[in-house]
Amino acid sequence: MENIKHIFKKEYKAYFVSPIAYIVIFVFLIIVGWLFFSTFFLDRQASLTRLFTLLPVTFAFIIPAVTMRLFSEEINIGSYELLHTLPVSNQEIIIGKFLAAVAFIGVMLAPTIVYAISTAFLGELDWGPVIGGYLGAILLGGAFSAIGLLASSLTRNQVVAFIISMAICFSLTLMMDFVLFFLPNSIVGFFQYLSANYHFQNIAKGMVDSRDLLYFLSVIFLSLYGTGLILQEKK
């Protein structure tokens, strides 16, 4: 447990000493701010629905940029050898890095709370969906981070890691919309269940259902477990 904390601290700090953190947060806030406010006054509704509707798509290309370096960079410069020969286990390394990425996403999301507060001034804001939205955003961020970590462990090239995780995250986000047109109704449900967007929108409505929680937790678990297997295989 101690070791997870030390790895977490190191990785979290590493985000903020390199410019990448500030660039990613900057780009994220611009995109989200524009998507949110461009139609905000046309809708004439005091709600954050617009913010959360498009969040999965935004996350699908922002989060791979956050996670791409976590293993790729270490494998590439060889510092992974130093880290791995210290008395820490693979699991501690993976969980520490994962938590650091999730904490970073939390920091990235934090400024958007200003939108909620200013919306509350303009009308009756229903806080249920807002809280659900943020909970969902953290779960979705966690799932995409875990996928990003998996992609990062596959290659020493950060660009390749970015593209792999972006491809997976986008597929999970858009799955529902694509298959709806092509497939018979009987199996649409199955693909709907695989879609990250579907589960996220459920939570963002303010209904926290165990099925949706289970979906995100299983994506996180499976991806981190896969990362462990890949690192083990490299030995």
Binding site: N3, K10, A14, S79, P87
Partner: peptide
């Protein structure tokens, strides 16, 4: 205690932070 060939290190870290981190991990 292991010194790999050409000690590959974390480029962006301060020397102090790095040694501090290793000291934490080493208990």
């Amino acid at each position: 205690g292991y010194l790999p060939e050409e000690a590959p290190l974390y480029h962006e870290m301060l020397v102090y932070d790095y040694l501090n981190f290793v000291a934490d991990i080493r208990g």
